[in-house]
């Protein structure tokens, strides 16, 4: 099953490579990965998604916890959570296609963030599945480029991954 693992990591050089190395070394897969500093500049927050069985994900979490630079972590998919991913997608749009592309974008609450004579660049946020659905819906047009941020997420309610 798909897991979203969120990690507070010491903001030190080499810390990220240990996380990535661990996944490669032990044969775990990474579907998406995103990492950036937090409000506390000694910490980074890393969010990754992986496909793993219960046993595998238990091992992944234990092995991650063993890394000295991992301060704390949570498997968001263990409870209720919100997840978001951002996508920028450049679509060829000329003539009558321009209105059609704009309409599809509006349906998905996308925003057109760049316009040229023959292209729209659309920004879309949502769950990964929503982004997948949009890519699918727009596939009758010519998609020039897609870039996705990878998943970020937080637990719902009072629960927080913090020191």
């Amino acid at each position: 099953m798909r897991r979203i693992i969120s990690v507070l990591l010491e903001n030190e050089s080499g810390a990220l490579s240990r996380v990535i190395g661990l996944f490669a070394q032990r044969g775990y897969n990474i579907e998406t990965l995103t990492v950036a500093p937090t409000d506390d500049d000694t910490l980074s927050r890393l969010t990754l998604t992986t496909i793993a069985s219960d046993e595998q994900s238990e091992q992944i979490i234990k092995q991650l916890n063993k890394l000295i630079e991992v301060v704390r972590l949570v498997d968001l998919t263990d409870g209720e959570y919100v997840e978001r991913e951002l996508m920028l997608i450049k679509v060829k749009a000329t003539g009558s296609q321009r209105a059609e592309v704009k309409r599809t974008s509006d349906i998905f609450r996308g925003q057109i963030v760049d316009v040229s004579a023959a292209n729209y660049t659309i920004q879309l946020t949502g769950t990964s599945r929503k982004l997948d659905a949009f890519v699918n819906a727009i596939s009758e047009f010519t998609v020039t480029e897609v870039v996705r941020s990878g998943v970020s997420g937080l637990s719902r309610g009072e629960k927080a991954l913090a020191l």
Binding site: G14, S17, R18, G21, Q25
Partner: peptide, 14 residues
């Protein structure tokens, strides 16, 4: 060295 030894150390310092 940090990269080469990473999978076989408990930790490393540069």
């Amino acid at each position: 060295m940090i990269g080469i030894s990473r999978p076989i150390v408990k930790h490393s310092f540069m």
